[in-house]
Simulated scan of single mutants.
Amino acid sequence: MNGRALVAWNLRRLRTERGISQERLAADAGVDRAYISELEREQGNVTVDLLDRLAFVLDVAVGEFFAASPEAGGRISPLPAGRKPRRP
């Protein structure tokens, strides 16, 4: 797996494990949601500065984006579609 694919896979894995939507991650990191989508689809190039911001939002070390795991390349279940119900 090349570097871009590894970052893309780990970004999506970390985001979905925490139940964070692309929209929320993008807003918290100060980028457009479409850019997060591009990164997860291996279409965009990420800077170290953005990796720092994403790591901060996801509460992980930057190195987590480069961590190879046994299931790397496997399917990651998407978050449920639609908006979450408002809290009372």
Rank of each mutant, 00 (worst) to 15 (best):
M1G: 14
M1E: 13
M1P: 10
N2Y: 05
G3T: 15
G3D: 15
R4W: 05
R4G: 02
A5S: 13
V7I: 15
V7A: 05
V7M: 07
A8M: 08
W9I: 01
W9C: 02
R12F: 01
R13F: 10
R13C: 00
L14I: 08
R15I: 09
R15N: 09
T16Y: 08
T16N: 12
E17K: 07
E17C: 01
E17R: 05
G19S: 00
G19W: 11
G19L: 01
I20S: 01
I20K: 00
I20N: 00
E23S: 02
R24I: 12
R24H: 11
R24S: 11
R24A: 06
L25V: 05
A26W: 11
A26C: 14
A26P: 10
A26H: 07
D28C: 06
A29L: 13
A29E: 08
A29T: 10
G30N: 09
G30R: 09
G30F: 11
G30V: 07
V31I: 15
V31D: 03
D32N: 12
D32Y: 14
D32F: 14
R33D: 02
A34R: 14
A34P: 00
A34Q: 14
Y35S: 06
Y35W: 13
Y35A: 05
Y35D: 03
I36H: 13
I36D: 04
I36A: 03
S37L: 08
S37W: 11
E38K: 15
E38T: 05
L39S: 00
L39W: 12
E40H: 03
R41D: 04
R41H: 15
Q43H: 13
Q43E: 13
G44Y: 14
G44F: 06
N45T: 04
N45I: 00
N45R: 12
N45L: 07
N45D: 12
V46F: 05
V46D: 03
V46Y: 11
V48F: 11
D49G: 02
D49S: 12
D49R: 10
L50I: 05
L50Q: 02
L51C: 02
L51G: 02
D52E: 14
D52H: 13
R53H: 04
R53A: 13
L54F: 10
L54K: 01
A55E: 09
A55C: 10
F56Y: 11
V57C: 05
V57Q: 02
V57E: 06
L58N: 00
D59N: 15
V60N: 04
A61K: 08
A61D: 13
A61N: 03
V62I: 15
G63L: 13
E64A: 15
E64C: 15
F66Y: 09
F66H: 04
A67H: 05
A67S: 09
A68V: 10
A68L: 14
A68C: 06
S69E: 15
P70Q: 04
E71H: 03
G73E: 05
G73C: 13
G73I: 10
G73F: 07
G74N: 09
R75V: 09
R75A: 11
I76S: 06
S77I: 10
S77E: 14
S77L: 09
P78T: 01
P78I: 07
P78N: 00
L79A: 02
L79F: 09
P80V: 07
P80C: 04
A81R: 13
A81K: 13
G82K: 01
R83Q: 15
K84N: 10
K84E: 15
P85T: 07
P85S: 10
R86T: 06
R86N: 08
R87C: 07
R87H: 08
P88R: 15
P88Q: 11
P88M: 06
